[in-house]
Write a protein that binds this DNA or RNA. Structure first.
Lengths: 110, 110
DNA sequence: TTTTAATATTGCAATATTACGATAAAGATT
DNA sequence: AATCTTTATCGTAATATTGCAATATTAAAA
């Protein structure tokens, strides 16, 4: 026990959960917002922006990247990170759909 | 170490992260989708729907409730759970705003 | 080529999450 | 009242996450 029973859920449920989980930490939300606010996006800037050690920030960046929320391209000896629009778009669509479905429900039971 | 340094981040970042984190598990996504798909929403049904023990489902429901994503009202000896539209609406707005900001950015650096 | 700068990785401690059986609590049914 | 049904909570084991210092890696600069 202890591990998420991933294999018992649908691919759709898992893939949304992976995106949500990656955003489930304030540092990673802060990274996304920072990437959104700047034109140049170098990792060093992100480290300076966050109240965490370089190693920790690097780890958070890795998780965002694994989830597909950001992409990184090597730029000399620095790395240029930026948001992957497709992932954000998927989330936007997902929550918009839920909103529409909720609006259509007549019974507001609670 | 080990605990999230919540106090070092803004209230906004934390509150979005709390919502995202609550959705960061396939079982909890499955619960949201199930609540969306039914009119009557009794906890027992949710337990039957998920490949997890009753205690585990109850725990996931608690987390969704703590995050503000669902509300529960006592209905006899059962509990009627349903989605809290405000939370979904907040997420929808959040990702829509990001999408808009991304579209406005000229430089697509990666 | 040594040195410097920027990131990533490793190793580890602290803490959190996931899952479930057992049990408790509280209303419904008999 | 005794029992059943439904949901919550407790205790505990397994696993994952968070955070950082130390170190590795890799490219630029001197």
């Amino acid at each position: 026990m202890g591990a998420t029973k991933t294999e018992h859920f649908t691919g759709k449920h898992n893939s949304i959960a992976i995106l949500a989980k990656a955003l489930g930490h304030p540092a990673r939300i802060a990274i996304i917002e920072y990437l959104l606010s700047v034109e140049t996006c170098i990792c060093g800037d992100i480290v300076n922006e966050l109240p965490l050690a370089q190693a920790t920030v690097s780890q958070h960046l890795k998780e965002l990247k694994n989830a597909g929320l950001i992409k990184g391209s090597i730029e000399g000896n620095a790395v240029c990170y930026c948001i992957d629009e497709k992932a954000i778009s998927r989330l936007q669509t997902y929550f918009a759909n839920i909103s529409v479905k909720l609006a259509k429900k007549k019974t507001d039971c609670c």
